[in-house]
Design a protein around this nucleic acid. Structure first.
Lengths: 342, 342
DNA sequence: TTGTAGGCGTTATCAA
DNA sequence: TTGATAACGCCTACAA
């Protein structure tokens, strides 16, 4: 039952062609007659042939390995990235490597971590996720080593490298629009740490739309650090004031969940007394009650796209034009119309 | 700066030995004189040599790939499994494959999924996670294909295959003990679906200890399905009764978080009016307020151990004696002493 | 458009 | 205890 896998030689024999021709078909090289290709493909199908990755990487230039570099505390986010990247890899017979860096380290230590990763084994390219995407040292080191990489949702120097992203600015604007449409006029915003640049973009999109809508008093602000704890603290800071906002937009879901906790502690019911909006549509959005209204970010798809970018383009032809995927406004239970003033 | 990696031949030349001897040292084979080994190791260190995985797998019997098979909806759980497994793999120069099966499929479809996974590429072994660990069809298929695998926290036929686990029974007993010690006498238990056998073990451990402690009225029960939603529903079922429990133990954290929501809806404050205990110490435990008291399960370590089991033992020497790791009772904010009867 | 020869870096076989 | 030498399955040159 354990029949050994077919080899290229066997395929060639069955198709009555040379092994090199089979190789050409497999690698979609040019200059092959349709007739030959057809016969080879038939043989491949009949033998259920799959090229041997080890042999290919030994003989050729490719390692058939793609790496994901991450430093994101949220397992939800990372799992989606890994899942999406892995899917794209495995569809093309590539392996996925994942390496967790610690960007809070000193520059020197971070550089060492990177060197270790790079010397660990051959790799055809890397996918970078925030906040690594915005650390100059990381980009510099990778470029110096002449390694290909694609960044996901970077903020720093967007045009510098191949990129996959969503339009954070527009999405945050849509949140503002939605809340405004429900009558809210007093807003709060919970931002992220400087290292997560996307928080800044979301803030800008939110504020900009509100201003365009005619809002005069800009939102009160508090800074979380993209964490649940930070969200609770920020929520208190925003809510325990003379004129608390009726709607709070947090730059990610974890912080939004924290804001909901703060609201409950303050005796405020969500969404009756306070509307809350998050960003990411991560796992936590469905682990709070009411379910969190948020912006869905297609993280898996973004990671897949990043890998495809890496694999589908020859070494020097990586488009620098960012690939921009669609976000979706997810209106669940944590927001609603503003209550009439008492 | 991009100096190409050293090869075995170069090491051999530098050490003044044959390439085969280097190979022997690398693979820790027997019958090598200390002197030779020493020289080879010096050369390896000097050249900073790392064996080429592709070449090794082409020439040898190993593929240098380990697979993780999962079907667990919780990204936290899966991420920890993947992280731990990956760590162990990469320490030994192995790649990690991850494959998501859908065990809700019909037998036939599930078998097809497995066949697809198995024919996808060579693999030196698999790590199975619940609930796949307890599906006879999966075990049978894997064994029929003569594939090595280790199960994590299986319930079905524990001695049948190499296994890594914790003592769910004892851990659940500790929860009972803790709650009992705080004066609770009216308990509720939220169980899981039959497919997740561990829920049954936890139930048994909880009930058994309570009985040993002298409790007469066994806990009221409700079944969630290991989900947040299920936990909310189960919480309502348990709480909206004439004599609601003062403490509820849920078989996992997601359900416990749901119970907390139900409690809040019922006007019960946690832990003042109701104590809640979860199991797993997953991400959600720190995304609710108060933080969830729970049992810490060393998931990463379990996955690492599973991979080590696979890699450190020759084909037929996989110990059947289960490897049992330690759990920890994590007492956070969701439980406390029972309130005196009103 | 197709085919031939050689080699990638390692392990396996067999001999010394 | 060591060392030649032949695979492993494929790709890169080059030739036809």
């Amino acid at each position: 039952m354990t029949k050994s896998r077919a080899t290229m030689t066997q395929v060639a024999r069955l198709a009555g062609v040379s092994i090199k021709s089979v190789s050409r078909v497999i690698n979609r090289e040019a200059h092959i007659s349709p007739r030959l290709r057809e016969r080879v493909e038939a043989a491949i199908a009949e033998l259920n042939y799959t090229p041997d990755t080890a042999a290919r990487s030994l003989a050729g230039a490719r390692a058939f390995v793609v790496g994901v570099l991450f430093d994101n505390p949220s397992p939800n986010y990372t799992m989606n990235i890994v899942g999406g990247a892995h899917e794209a890899c495995s569809a093309q017979g590539y392996h996925l490597r994942i390496d967790n860096l610690d960007s809070t380290e000193q520059d020197r230590a971070l550089a060492d971590q990177l060197e270790a990763v790079l010397s660990h084994g051959r790799c055809d390219g890397f996918v970078l996720t925030p906040p690594l995407t915005d650390i100059p040292l990381v980009l510099d080191t990778l470029e110096r080593h002449d390694v290909r990489f694609v960044r996901i949702a970077p903020v720093l120097a967007p045009g510098r490298t191949p990129t996959v992203q969503i339009d954070d600015f527009a999405a945050a604007g849509a949140v503002a629009q939605c809340l405004w449409g429900m009558g809210h006029r007093h807003f709060g915003f919970v931002g992220g740490p400087p290292s997560h640049g996307a928080a800044g973009t979301r803030r800008a999109g939110f504020f900009s739309r509100l201003k365009a809508l005619g809002l005069e008093a800009m939102p009160s602000e508090a800074s979380g650090d993209f964490s649940f704890d930070g969200g609770i603290a920020a929520g208190f800071a925003l809510l325990r004031t003379a004129t608390p906002p009726t709607a709070i937009f947090a730059a990610n879901d974890d912080m939004a969940a924290g804001v909901m906790v703060a609201a409950a502690q303050c005796g405020l019911a969500v969404p009756r007394d306070l509307s809350v909006f998050g960003f990411d549509d991560s796992w936590v959005a469905l682990s709070v009650w009411p379910y969190l209204s948020t912006v869905h970010q297609p993280i898996r798809a973004m990671a897949s796209a990043a890998v495809s970018l890496l694999l589908d383009h020859p070494r020097e032809a990586l488009a620098l034009e960012p690939v921009t995927l669609d976000w979706t406004l997810i209106e669940r239970g944590s927001h609603g119309p503003v209550r009439p003033e008492r």
